[in-house]
Structure formats: structure tokens, C-alpha cells
Design a protein around this nucleic acid. Structure first.
Lengths: 236, 236
DNA sequence: GCTTTGTCATCTGTTGACAGTCGTCAAGTG
DNA sequence: CACTTGACGACTGTCAACAGATGACAAAGC
């Protein structure tokens, strides 16, 4: 029993928030699925109060509310996904630019090791299992952290990546995309090692732009056919 | 009484949310100010439930919570503000790039009129009252909307701009900055009219970078001296 | 048979009350 | 006098119950 570790009796609302994020990101709650407050509250063993607070914090990110009707998991169209990738391109490009001067040599070594580990892995050579298993996320998040911009890292890590992760499992890779992505990662690291901000930003933006144009839709049109509950909210 | 307009009986939580955003942005609640739930709930004439939901939605944006202690208006350090400007540079630069091809001729005409109106106004010539009165926001938001990227516009308009607005009233302009900003706006519109994405993005990024390096702190160190309530949250 | 209208079950929005925690202040101890 | 300890007040976190709205279904009218 370590006394250096403080007792973390986190609020029920925070715990519910984490559980919900996990459930949605892992696909246990499918996009478009309706969430019944009483049902979920019972399953989590809490009352509706904390759950509502957690749902409120998720609103606009992973969940959308319709007054007097209910809450449902966000359901992004292909166009929405493209829009998110555009934001990624802008923000991660900037993060990579900053990282080129802000990352320490040790950070760069860690990043290099991450890249080497990817290169020797089965999935990359076989052209699959790179994006799917989160290795790609690790690489990107490592650079984002390296930008030393906390606001930027927080937004990408807590908001954007979560939304994208919801749809990862239903996006497949074009043939040879994994190898190309790996090569692009190498180019990025090279630019970072050279401490060249312009080249680093350009390489990252190119990488994400390529990923965007390679977006496949395993289940084309799903988002449009998912039952929309209620009417669109009046007013703005 | 127009029948085409539906009856909007918005939820109390939504109303409270809007009221809070207004109060914080307009400076009625100062940065770092503590918010008592019962007190604010009484003043708004609602119970604590909807208020808590509204506060939850504000968390991380305009407000920060400390478990068992309370809620206080965010208090950004100068470094935080710089970080937000870096994000602005990346996102608005991208927005401007997209706008260069996405904006219609009519959009461009509207933007031109907005710019002309600014140019003839007293404030710009006298070197003040440009940023302070929201004219600058109009210009930028007009371009952001012109990008036709709803996710991007939503994030900038609902999250980033609100946070920046909290601190607008305490940032003053360096001498001659207003005129320089106006000239930069002109350059941006020119690039947009030329339908040149590269130049448009570069111009916008330069403009925001200039604004960032001209950030003045009317009340240097305020954020640091504001009483921090409670201890920093354990974990995470 | 199709449309319209009335009713009902179910869910969300809201409330008020209870329990637990934190910070403060005063009393006690060395 | 400095420090620790205990109790108090105020606040937040949580809950269970009430009120209002919604969507679906069945009955009535054309």
C-alpha cells in the first residue's frame, strides 16, 4: 500500500464520462445508436444526474442531443470525415513545424525507435494492421506532444482523435497505403531531425492529405441511412 | 405572428449556457472568478440541475472545475494566449486557403464591403477601436464561413473565439497596429479575389502571426496572481 | 382504405432534499 | 509563540420523485 499515491475518489460524472468515451470509441455503442438515460445509468450503477453531466460534456464531440427526444452517438458522413481530416492537416502540420525546433534529441530518439518498431512489424509489410492497431496514432501523438503546445495537444488528443477513432474500424486501407504511410512517416522524422520547420510541416501535411484522399468507406452511405431521431433542432 | 417560425421553448440548460457564455465573454464574470452554483442558480431563477449541465458543457472552454471545490472562470496566462493564437494561425490559414476557391463572387463582394466599411471608420484611422468592437471578428469569421468547412467554422466560432474574447478587453494595441492590421486584411482579400490559395493562406498566417507578436498585456501577470482555489486535480 | 384525431406509455427536463467533502477558525498542546 | 487538532459552516456531489413533452398506436370520420 503505497502512501505516495493519493486516494483518487473521482467523481461519478468523470468516471461515467470515461466509460462512455471508451464504449463509443471501442465501438460498443455504434454511431447513430440511441442512448437511453435510465438504461445506461442502471448499467453503470449510478443515477441519472452524473450521467447527464457526462453526456453534456460529450455533446458536440461524440454525442448529439435532441431536446425532449434523446441522445445518440454521433454519426459522421463521409463529408464530415473529410472536414475533420482538413482540420487535422492544418493543426498537425503546425504541430510538426513547432516540433522541429521544440523536440529534444531524446524525444527524437524515442520517435525514431517508435518508427523502427513499426517498420519491423508484420502488419506494415503485409499492408494492414497499421492504422487499425493504433500505431499510427502513437506516432502522430508523439509529434503533437513534441510541439510543446498544450492547448493544441489537448484539442487533438481529447476531441479530434476521439471522433476519428469512432470511424477507424470501418475504414479500410487502399492497397499499398500502409507502406506509403510508413515511407511518409520516415520523411517526417527526417525533416524533424534536420530541424527544418518548413519541410517538417510540408511533410506532415502531405501525409495527412494523402491519408484523406485514400479514405475508403467500407460501408458507403451508412451515416445517411442511420435512423435520425426527432426533427432537426429549431433555431441555432 | 408568423406561423412559419416554430415555437422555441429551449431547455433551461441551454438558456443558462447562453447566459453564462455572454456573461463571461462580456466580462461580467472576470477571469478567475469563482462561480457559486446556488448563487448563480438563484440569480438565473433555475435550480442547480440545469445549471450544472450548462457548466459541464463549458468545462475546458470557458470554465474549469475542481472536484468538491467549485467552478471558476478560466484564467489564461500569456503563454496560453500565445498557444491559442498558434492554433488560430493554423486553422484560419487553412480556412483562408479553402475560401480562396470555395467563396462565391457574392461572398467576396460582401467581404469587400465589410473591409471598405472598416477603412472609412474613425477607429481605424485613429489606431484604436478596431479589435475592440468586433469588426475584426466579423472579417475573420466571414472568411472562416467562406471555407465551407462546417466543423472548422464551428470550432473556431464556438470554442476558440470565445476563449480569446475573454481576454480582448485587457489587450491593448501597439501603436499603429490597427493600420497595419487593416493593410493585412486588404492583402488577404486581394489574394482571395485572385483565387490564389497559397497566397491567401500565407497572408492570413502572416496576419495572425503579426497579431500574436503584438500581443500586449495590459495587466501583466494577472493570471498568475489570481487566487487559485483548491489543489490541482490528482491523476491524469 | 386513407386521413385525422384522441389517448397512452415512455422518456427527458427539472426540482428539492440528503450526504459527503473541503476550507476556516478556534481551542488545545509542546 | 508556533504547531497541531478538532469542530463548524458552506459548498458540491448524488439521488429519487414530479412535471412536461414526444412518438406510437388505436379509434373515429371522410
Amino acid at each position: 500500500m503505497s502512501l505516495s499515491e493519493p486516494i483518487v475518489n473521482q467523481t461519478l460524472a468523470v468516471q461515467a464520462f470515461d466509460k462512455l468515451v471508451n464504449a463509443i470509441v471501442r465501438g460498443e455503442l455504434e454511431p447513430g445508436a440511441r442512448i437511453s438515460e435510465v438504461q445506461v445509468a442502471q448499467r453503470l450503477g449510478i443515477s441519472r444526474g452524473p450521467l447527464r453531466e457526462a453526456l453534456g460534456r460529450l455533446e458536440g464531440k461524440l454525442v448529439q442531443r435532441t431536446p425532449h427526444v434523446g441522445v445518440q452517438v454521433i454519426s459522421l458522413s463521409r463529408a464530415d470525415l473529410v472536414e475533420l481530416f482538413v482540420m487535422r492537416e492544418a493543426l498537425e502540420g503546425m504541430a510538426c513545424r513547432l516540433a522541429a525546433t521544440a523536440m529534444s534529441e531524446k524525444d527524437l530518439d524515442d520517435l525514431q525507435r517508435l518508427l523502427d518498431a513499426h517498420g519491423t512489424r508484420e502488419g506494415v509489410r503485409r499492408g494492414t494492421g497499421y492504422y487499425q492497431h493504433g500505431s499510427d496514432d502513437d506516432f502522430h501523438f508523439c509529434i503533437v506532444r513534441g510541439s510543446r503546445n498544450r492547448k493544441l495537444a489537448a484539442f487533438l488528443g481529447d476531441d479530434l482523435y476521439h471522433q476519428l477513432r469512432v470511424y477507424r474500424y470501418r475504414s479500410s486501407l487502399a492497397p499499398g497505403r500502409a507502406q506509403a504511410a510508413f515511407a511518409e512517416h520516415c520523411a517526417i522524422v527526417e525533416a524533424l531531425r534536420a530541424r527544418d520547420p518548413d519541410r517538417a510541416e510540408a511533410a506532415m501535411r502531405q501525409h495527412i492529405a494523402n491519408a484523406r484522399s485514400n479514405l475508403q468507406w467500407r460501408d458507403e452511405g451508412t451515416a445517411a441511412t442511420v435512423t435520425r431521431i426527432g426533427a432537426p433542432r429549431h433555431g441555432s
